[in-house]
Nucleic acid binder design. Sequence first.
DNA 1: ATGATAATATTCACTCATAAACATTTCGCT
DNA 2: AGCGAAATGTTTATGAGTGAATATTATCAT
Lengths: 142, 142
Amino acid sequence: MFMSEYYHSLDTKGRLIIPQKFREQLGNEFILSRGLDHCLYIYTQEEWEKFIEKLSTLPELSNANGRKLNRFFIAGSIQCEVDKQGRVLIPASLREFASLEKEVVLAGVGKRIEVWNKNAWEDYNNFDDVEGIASSLEAFNI
Amino acid sequence: MFMSEYYHSLDTKGRLIIPQKFREQLGNEFILSRGLDHCLYIYTQEEWEKFIEKLSTLPELSNANGRKLNRFFIAGSIQCEVDKQGRVLIPASLREFASLEKEVVLAGVGKRIEVWNKNAWEDYNNFDDVEGIASSLEAFNI
DNA sequence: ATGATAATATTCACTCATAAACATTTCGCT
DNA sequence: AGCGAAATGTTTATGAGTGAATATTATCAT
């Protein structure tokens, strides 16, 4: 599983170095897609297919939200290959979607990796909200 | 179970010597993660997996809190291996999260070990009011 | 107490991942 | 064809991470 967070930076061409630790698990090819909360998701080929499988169980024909989610994830995804230096080019449209400029965070979250604008990540993870977290744990019975 | 507290120090690279007593129980590999109250948690591999098991039952696609908890704990954790001298490197992001600089306290708390900034630990642990706290837990009938 | 041993702390040196700068190629457009 | 922009590739620097060596402190047995 993917875990830990890494602070990296985009070069002037919008390329991102994938942390060594992640590359070992990912291999050279993976899927980059739009993610929830305005970050990007990175999936292995395999996990991506599982994810799409689940998405496809949503009622598309009858349900507008189902269609919307499918478009969000599937149209917003791209197959990537890391170059010899361990970098990938993040397309401009995805960079814009996630407000990536220079400083980014790569966060391992189980089956996927997430790419965040550094400031957005730090705002989101305002962990002074400890009680909130603790009470969530309680609510979920953990 | 883990118990007792130890006062140790980080070296200039942010490495921490795990007390011998803890190492005997922990083994060479364990998980270091963000914890509540701005300290770090150390779990055995085994305990960690139990915890992840629970976390993984949370709905992610449909629930914002589920995502938040996963991000907090999984992105905030790392698999560690102690080196031949009994040390582990604490990544900069976790050091910052727990305000670890030089003097730290390692505290055994049952199933986990906690790592605290020494001053934070001493402030938090003024036990003047333990009796008051204990009485607030009356409802649990312990 | 005293010395022997183990545990912790500190320092130094080196490697390799990341960052940054620069060069080349590809491709669309006029 | 010739130009410019984007994509791809190469090279060099920097510094975090790692390992080894040494110094200091604590622990224990005699």
